[in-house]
């Protein structure tokens, strides 16, 4: 059973062993509006925590998605290339962006759990 963490930049990461699956939150998806394109990194890319990993575009905005933790990209979600609308439909499920191999699990300690994130969103709005 994987554990899910959240960032203040509205990314989520589901951790299963040393593998993390990353996406943007449902709240972020609603804020961005209709998603028209997701730019995914190449496999093998090493990303440091907080670095730009993907770009998600709506018609009028392009937003960077930052790596919640450091690691190497081991898989990208090809379904998004064909169907970016998936992000609007299932942001925290089928519309994951990348999977990474974690290099520093302790970075997870800085992230929020579901309850903390919900409270964060509540306060931000």
């Amino acid at each position: 059973m994987s554990q899910i963490y959240y960032t203040t930049d509205h990314e989520w990461i589901a951790v299963d062993g040393d593998t993390g699956t990353i996406g943007i939150t449902d709240h972020a998806q609603k804020q961005l509006g209709d998603i028209v394109f997701v730019e995914l990194p190449e496999k093998g890319l090493e990303v440091a925590k907080g670095e730009e990993a993907c770009v998600v575009e709506s018609v009028k905005a392009a937003s960077e998605v930052y790596a919640p933790v450091s690691g190497e990209v081991i898989e990208t979600n090809d379904a998004l290339a064909e169907n970016s609308a998936l992000v609007n439909e299932d942001a925290e499920g089928a519309a994951w962006f990348v999977k990474i191999q974690l290099t520093n699990r302790s970075e997870l300690d800085d992230l929020m759990d579901k309850a903390a994130y919900d409270a964060f969103v509540e306060n931000e709005g």
Partner: peptide, 12 residues
């Protein structure tokens, strides 16, 4: 595809 353009991406 105007997200490529300067008025949105600025320095990117």
């Amino acid at each position: 595809l105007s997200t490529r353009e300067q008025h949105i991406r600025r320095e990117k």
